[in-house]
């Protein structure tokens, strides 16, 4: 069976540092020098990604619980946010025990 987006295990790239500023987050990509600001919701996701490998499905459940939103909506929001993070090359996907840096 094909792997769907929410089955992929992901984590924050080792080349990224982040800092909580007020209620938002500042991410710095060390190699690219890119600086990204994320919202309060984004910060919750980034913190979870920084704590260890997780999945989009787990992140959606986390967001739904934390912000009292319907799970379907949380899934859509998380997916959109992860797409943005992938585009900024700040995520690593982990397949069969091996980390694949998307950079």
């Amino acid at each position: 069976m094909a792997e769907t987006w929410h089955d992929v295990t992901i984590r924050l790239s080792g080349r990224v540092r982040f800092r909580t500023v007020a209620e938002e987050g500042v991410l710095v990509h060390l190699r690219r020098g890119q600086v990204i600001v994320v919202s309060r919701v984004g910060l919750v996701i980034v913190k979870a990604l920084a704590q260890g490998a997780t999945s989009a499905a787990a992140l959606a459940e986390l967001v739904a619980g934390e912000f009292q939103v319907e799970l379907g909506q949380a899934r859509r929001d998380v997916e959109a946010f992860l797409d943005q993070l992938r585009a900024e090359e700040v995520l690593e996907e982990i397949n069969a025990g091996a980390a694949t840096a998307r950079e």
Binding site: R19, V21, A22, E24, G25, V26, V28, V35, I36, V37, V38
Partner: peptide, 12 residues
Amino acid sequence: VRPAMAVAGLLT
């Protein structure tokens, strides 16, 4: 400027 945006802007 919101604090996070200010930090991002000043980093550069």
